[in-house]
Amino acid sequence: MTTEMTSNQKDQSPLLEGRGVSKYFGGLAALHNVDFAIYPGEIMGLIGPNGSGKTTLFDCLSRVQQINTGEIHFKGQEISKKKPFQVAHMGLARTFQVFRVYRKLTVLENMLLSRQWRNESIFRQLRPSHPDTDQRARELLEFLTLDHLTYEQAGNLSGGQQRLLEIGMALMPDPELILLDEAASGVNPVLINTIKDRILHLSNEQGKTFLLIEHNMEFIGDLCSRVFVLNFGEKLAEGTPEDVMTNEDVIEAYFGS
């Protein structure tokens, strides 16, 4: 293990931990025997060439995909048998590589719908959104510089704005772990810096934990304390961004030999 953990991290138990996670599509191994651990408060990068299983891993974590073998523990609980909404209730939020905003609803409605849905009965939902929820949604929109679009239909937003909205929707339930799938792709440089700022702010001020898939190495280098590399569904390397980017296996996987 090349990782240099801070003493803080060694003492803590991991927030999210996977042991021997495998996922097969037919005969194709999208993930093979992957182990990983993410500690509270860190920003971890997940990189790898196209088709290396990054998004599949996210899908397995947010329970859209069933894993074939292995265990995933989140906050000490086994989650690989839970439903997607139950994992969300536990405090795991994510964004998507392909936008998943509710296109026909307004930006504000999108945010309100992403609130923390505790396991409440239908009757609790039979009322308009709580003023506190509304307040929080508006604050977050302001934080993400989307407040001028509050009443716009989400489908009319530009790609970068939809990215920001997705991040806002992921932040809305005040999750402990946030999975960001290519949060910087298709976003103009100014917005990238905004996103970067916001992530750092959330990590430093509020102690949120992030796991990000990214192709933009600069983005990774600026944000992440640790990087995890997948290739053909297997763990290739793990360590600080500098270590990983000079790792020969990684260079070979990206650029070929």
Binding site: R63, V64, R100, Y102, L105, L113
Partner: peptide, 28 residues
């Protein structure tokens, strides 16, 4: 006008996304 109603529209717009954002789509 209720959250329940909005969650229905969310199911129409993107059911998978709605479920991953914590809405119990099956129940609703």
């Amino acid at each position: 006008s209720t959250e329940f109603g909005s969650s229905l529209v969310a199911i129409r717009e993107d059911e998978v996304g709605a479920e991953m954002r914590g809405i119990n789509t099956t129940l609703n």
